[in-house]
Amino acid sequence: MSDEARGRRLFPDLALPDKLMDAAPDEVSSGERQRLALIRALILQPYFILLDEPTSALDPAATLMVERVLARAKEDGTGLLVVSHDPEQVARIADRHYALSDCGLAEVVS
């Protein structure tokens, strides 16, 4: 399967219209760019992805869509390191939770 075909298969999961495949950058919203960046990473089928605030520009519905796509990637064996300031998001998607403070990095035990 081509990269384009793999990418197009993710469009419905992230509520992206097919027309974005041919859109100029200035025609794409910041939230759409954020979801397209995730697709771009996932089509490479990486072993590991580092995500820094992957849903910061998204509304709650789009955030949940991204989290579902990330959960599926995790189930398929992709490792994820997600940086988030949203404790609810961390609770929904994390297997482990670490906090960074002036004292360093420490695991947060629930």
Rank of each mutant, 00 (worst) to 15 (best):
Ala61Asn: 11
Thr63Ser: 07
Asp95Cys: 02
Ala24Ile: 08
Leu38Glu: 02
Leu20Cys: 14
Phe11Cys: 03
His97Met: 05
Ala37Arg: 05
Asp59Cys: 02
Pro17Leu: 09
His97Ile: 11
Glu67Met: 04
Ser29Gln: 00
Arg9Glu: 04
Leu50Ala: 11
Val90Thr: 07
Arg33Asn: 14
Val83Leu: 12
Phe11Trp: 04
Asp13Val: 01
Lys19Met: 08
Arg96Thr: 13
Gly104Tyr: 06
Ser101Gly: 12
Ala106Pro: 01
Arg6Asp: 08
Thr63His: 00
Asp26Arg: 15
Ser101Lys: 11
Gly77Thr: 02
Gly31Leu: 06
Pro60Asn: 04
Ile49Arg: 02
Gly79Asn: 09
Ala62Cys: 06
Gly31Pro: 10
Leu14Lys: 12
Gly77His: 07
Glu75Asp: 10
Glu27Lys: 10
Gly77Cys: 05
Leu44Ser: 15
Ala15Lys: 10
Asp52Pro: 05
Pro87Leu: 07
Gly79Pro: 04
Lys74Tyr: 05
Glu53Thr: 07
Leu100Thr: 15
Ala57Arg: 15
Ile93Ala: 14
Arg40Glu: 13
Val28Leu: 10
Ala91Met: 07
Leu16Trp: 06
Val69Leu: 01
Pro54Ser: 02
Val69Arg: 03
Ser2Trp: 14
Ala62Asn: 13
Asp52Leu: 08
Ala62Val: 02
Met21Glu: 13
Glu107Lys: 09
Leu10Ile: 04
Val69Gly: 01
Ala41Trp: 12
Met1Cys: 00
Pro12Phe: 03
Val90Lys: 02
Ala57Asp: 09
Ala106Tyr: 05
Ser2Glu: 15
Ser30Leu: 15
Pro60Glu: 03
Gly77Val: 07
Leu81Val: 09
Ile43Glu: 00
Ser2Val: 07
Ala71Ile: 05
Leu50Ser: 06
Leu58Thr: 04
Val82Lys: 01
Gln45Gly: 14
His97Pro: 01
Gln34Lys: 01
Val108Gly: 09
Ile43Thr: 06
Cys103Asp: 14
Asp102Lys: 12
Asp13Trp: 07
Ala15Thr: 13
Gln45Met: 12
Leu16Ala: 08
Asp52Lys: 03
Asp95Leu: 02
Arg6Leu: 13
Gly7Asn: 04
Asp26Tyr: 15
Tyr47Gln: 08
Leu58Asp: 04
Met1Ile: 13
Arg9Ala: 13
Ala57Ile: 08
Arg96His: 14
Ser56Phe: 04
Ala37His: 03
Ala41Cys: 08
Glu67Ser: 02
Leu100Ser: 07
Val109Gln: 14
Leu44Asp: 10
Arg40Ser: 15
Ile49His: 08
Tyr98Arg: 01
Leu58Val: 01
Phe48Val: 11
Ala73Leu: 07
Asp22Val: 05
Leu64Ala: 11
Tyr47Gly: 14
